[in-house]
């Protein structure tokens, strides 16, 4: 028996918005410690890694490890039926071929349940090596989304360049060039407004706008985003999900000339 009840059901709706453009389907690996999802996009350019810890749920029970393959467009249709203040429960029997979503309104006057067929997905899991990143940049997530959106008008790629002075995002194309420089903030009233750069060595890498823009669908999950870069390895874009976990996107760089 698997059962996970999330009082802040809106978080699950936001998680769905954060992955559904990138992934058509994904396996939810449910275990005693919580729920994990790891999946590559269709083109195998990026990887999504979602972690929801059991402690973040109001009620969590997982008697046996369970892999639930879900069609994300179907799951998204179902989660759209939940109101933002609904409590969401996911449950499944051991070895079941369906999962049930239960939505409870805050005062319990409306309770809906939706049963969805599971699909068998033969998905490979990738080993993500432990990496000490040369540059770790924290910035407001809305600012990052804005930068990706603005620079996408200029070209298909964004160059991210991190030095001790700060971080520079650049794009170039037919209409011209664009550069956005963010300096590390000295003092801020709210921590979530800060730009922080932790740099061991300068790094410059080039990434496809298309994927960066899809990652920014996670913006409603967290006021801050963390970018980690090292020379010639994938970028990590991480959004914390309150006290429950995180979503990380890994994006392979564009390389060479």
């Amino acid at each position: 028996m698997f059962e996970a009840r999330l009082v802040q059901g809106a978080l699950l709706k936001k998680v769905m918005e954060a992955i559904k453009e990138l992934l058509n389907e994904a396996s939810f690996d449910c275990a005693h410690s919580g729920i994990l999802l790891q999946a590559m996009d269709n083109s195998h350019v990026s990887l999504v890694s979602l972690n929801l810890r059991r402690e973040g749920f109001d009620k969590y029970r997982c008697d046996r490890n369970l892999v639930m393959g879900m069609n994300l467009s179907s799951m998204s249709k179902i989660l759209k039926c939940a109101s933002n203040d609904d409590i969401i429960t996911m449950k499944a029997q051991d070895n079941a071929d369906t999962v049930t979503f239960v939505f409870e309104s805050p005062k319990q006057e409306k309770i809906s349940d939706y049963e969805m067929k599971l699909t068998n997905l033969d998905q490979d899991h990738l080993g993500i090596p432990e990496t000490e990143y040369s540059c770790v940049i924290k910035l407001p997530s809305a600012e990052f989304a804005r930068i990706c959106r603005d620079l996408s008008q200029f070209g298909e790629s964004i160059v991210i360049s991190c030095t001790k002075e700060g971080v520079k995002f650049s794009a170039a194309g037919d209409i011209g060039t664009a550069n956005i420089k963010l300096a590390q903030t000295a003092t801020v009233d709210k921590e979530e407004d800060a730009v922080m750069v932790d740099m061991q060595e300068p790094v410059t890498l080039t990434f496809a706008c298309k994927y960066l823009n899809m990652f920014t669908k996670a913006t409603p999950l967290s006021p801050q985003v963390c970018l980690s870069m090292s020379p010639d390895v994938p970028l990590v874009v991480e959004y914390k999900i309150e006290d429950i976990g995180h979503i990380r996107y890994y994006l392979a760089p564009r390389i060479g000339d």
Binding site: M40, H44, V45, S46, L47, D124, H125, L126, G127, I128, P129, S157, T206, A208, V233, P234, Y250, L251, A252, P253, R254, I255, G256, D257
Partner: peptide, 14 residues
């Protein structure tokens, strides 16, 4: 022109 790398050239299948 730069070329898009694949994520699987960095992370190997388990």
């Amino acid at each position: 022109k730069s070329k898009q790398a694949s994520i699987t050239s960095f992370f190997k299948k388990k």
